[in-house]
Lab assay of single mutants.
Amino acid sequence: NQASVVANQLIPINTALALVMMRSEVVTPVGIPAEDIPRLVSMQVNRAVPLGTTLMPDMVKGYA
């Protein structure tokens, strides 16, 4: 199964993503693939992302 990017902490709106904020986990539904974690670093989220939430492409500015 494909691992997705999951929030490792609460990520406030407009926060630039850092490695420590993300982990990979096999979840349903599938979100952003875990292999894209390096690409996500320094991109901003466009909403608050609670701990344990799967990151979806529409949550990250400039990802989709």
Rank of each mutant, 00 (worst) to 15 (best):
S4G: 04
P38T: 10
N8G: 06
E25M: 10
P57H: 11
Q9P: 01
N1K: 07
M22A: 00
P50R: 07
V20P: 10
S4W: 03
N8I: 07
L19Q: 06
I13D: 10
D36W: 08
G62L: 11
V45D: 00
M22F: 07
A64C: 08
A18L: 14
P29K: 05
R39W: 11
P29I: 05
V27Q: 04
P29Q: 05
N14V: 03
V26F: 08
I32M: 03
L10D: 15
E35R: 06
S42D: 11
G52W: 04
A34M: 07
M22D: 00
A7S: 10
D58Q: 10
N46D: 09
L40V: 05
P12Q: 12
V27G: 03
V30P: 15
Q9A: 11
T15F: 07
R47M: 14
P38W: 11
P33I: 14
K61Q: 12
S4A: 03
M21N: 05
V41R: 05
Y63R: 03
A16M: 13
R47E: 15
N1D: 15
V45R: 00
P38I: 09
I13G: 08
I37L: 12
N1L: 15
A48P: 08
K61V: 13
G31W: 03
G31Q: 02
P12Y: 06
M43G: 02
Q9G: 05
A16H: 13
A48G: 07
V30S: 13
V6E: 01
A48I: 14
P50S: 10
V6Y: 03
T15Y: 14
Q2S: 13
V41M: 07
T28A: 10
V6L: 07
V45H: 01
L40F: 02
I11V: 06
M21K: 02
Y63T: 03
V20T: 15
R39D: 05
K61T: 13
Q2F: 14
Q9F: 07
R23P: 00
G31Y: 02
Q2K: 07
V60S: 00
V60H: 02
P50K: 10
T53I: 10
N14S: 08
P57R: 10
G62I: 04
G31I: 02
Y63Q: 03
T15H: 07
N14F: 14
V49H: 01
M56C: 11
Y63W: 13
P38A: 11
R23H: 05
V5N: 02
D36M: 12
M21C: 04
R47P: 02
A34S: 14
Q2D: 14
V45W: 01
V49P: 02
P12I: 05
A7R: 02
S42N: 11
T28K: 07
P12H: 10
L10F: 15
M56E: 07
Y63F: 07
G62R: 09
M22I: 10
R47K: 08
I32W: 02
L55C: 03
V60M: 04
D58H: 10
G31V: 02
A18D: 06
T15L: 04
V26N: 10
V20L: 14
L17D: 02
S42Q: 09
E35I: 08
A7K: 01
I32S: 02
I37V: 06
L19F: 14
D58V: 08
P38V: 10
P12M: 11
N8P: 01
L17S: 00
I37Y: 03
M56G: 04
L40S: 01
A7V: 09
L55D: 00
S4Q: 01
L10M: 10
R23E: 05
E35A: 10
V30F: 14
V20I: 11
V27L: 05
T53Q: 14
L10W: 14
M59W: 07
G62H: 09
I13N: 15
V5Q: 01
V26T: 09
A18P: 00
T54H: 02
L40Q: 01
S24V: 11
V45L: 12
M59V: 06
A7I: 05
I37E: 01
E25V: 09
A18N: 08
I11K: 00
D58K: 10
P29T: 05
L51R: 15
I37Q: 04
S42W: 09
K61S: 13
D36Y: 13
V41D: 02
E25R: 08
N14G: 11
S42A: 10
D58G: 14
P33N: 12
M59F: 12
N1W: 12
P12F: 06
I13K: 13
V45Y: 00
V45S: 05
G52L: 04
T28C: 11
E35G: 11
V30A: 12
R47D: 05
S42P: 02
V49I: 15
P29S: 03
S24M: 10
P12T: 07
N1G: 14
E35N: 11
S42F: 13
A16I: 15
R23W: 04
S42V: 03
A34P: 06
T54R: 03
S4T: 04
P50G: 11
Q2W: 15
Q44T: 15
V20Q: 12
P38N: 11
D36V: 08
V20C: 14
V60Y: 01
M56N: 05
M21V: 03
M56H: 07
R23Y: 05
V6K: 03
L19P: 06
G62D: 08
L55W: 01
P57Q: 09
A48V: 13
T53D: 13
N1T: 14
R39K: 13
S4F: 03
M43C: 06
E25A: 10
V30R: 06
S42L: 10
L55P: 01
D58M: 11
P57I: 05
A18W: 05
D36L: 14
M21F: 06
V27M: 06
L40P: 01
T54G: 01
R47A: 08
D36S: 14
V20W: 15
L17V: 02
D58R: 07
R39N: 08
N1Y: 15
G52V: 01
A48K: 11
I13H: 11
A16S: 09
A7N: 01
G62P: 04
P50M: 09
T53M: 13
V49K: 01
A3V: 09
L10P: 13
A7W: 03
A18I: 10
L40D: 00
V49E: 02
T53H: 14
V41W: 03
N46G: 07
P12K: 08
R39E: 05
M21R: 00
V30K: 08
L40R: 00
Y63S: 03
E25H: 09
A18M: 12
R39Y: 07
M59H: 08
R23I: 06
S4M: 02
S24W: 11
A7E: 02
I32Y: 01
I11W: 02
S4R: 01
Y63K: 03
R23K: 08
I11P: 01
V41C: 06
L19N: 05
S24I: 10
A34L: 03
V60R: 01
T53A: 12
V6N: 01
E25L: 10
K61R: 15
T54L: 04
N8L: 06
I37N: 00
T28P: 00
I13E: 12
Q44C: 14
V5Y: 02
V60K: 02
P29D: 05
L51A: 15
I11F: 00
D36A: 09
V27P: 00
V27S: 04
P33Y: 11
Q44S: 13
R39A: 08
M43T: 04
V45F: 01
Q44I: 14
M21Y: 09
K61C: 13
V6M: 04
V60P: 01
P29F: 03
M21T: 03
S4D: 00
V6G: 00
Y63P: 03
N1A: 15
P57D: 05
P57W: 11
L51H: 12
P50D: 07
A3E: 14
P33F: 09
V27A: 06
I11Y: 00
D58S: 10
Q9M: 14
S24R: 13
R23T: 05
P57C: 08
N1E: 15
V30C: 06
S24Y: 08
I11H: 01
L10S: 14
L51T: 12
V49G: 02
A34K: 07
S42G: 14
M22P: 00
V5K: 00
T53F: 13
V49Q: 02
M56R: 06
A48Y: 15
G62E: 09
N8K: 09
A3P: 09
A64Y: 07
Q2Y: 12
V26K: 06
I32H: 02
Q2H: 12
A64M: 11
M56K: 08
N14H: 14
Q2N: 12
V26I: 13
I13C: 15
V20N: 14
T28L: 09
G52A: 12
L19H: 10
I37C: 04
T53V: 10
A64E: 08
L10R: 11
V60F: 04
A48N: 13
A18V: 12
L19R: 13
P38L: 13
I37R: 07
R39F: 11
L40M: 06
L10N: 13
V30M: 14
S4V: 02
G62V: 04
V5G: 01
S24N: 06
V6R: 02
T28G: 05
A3C: 14
G31H: 02
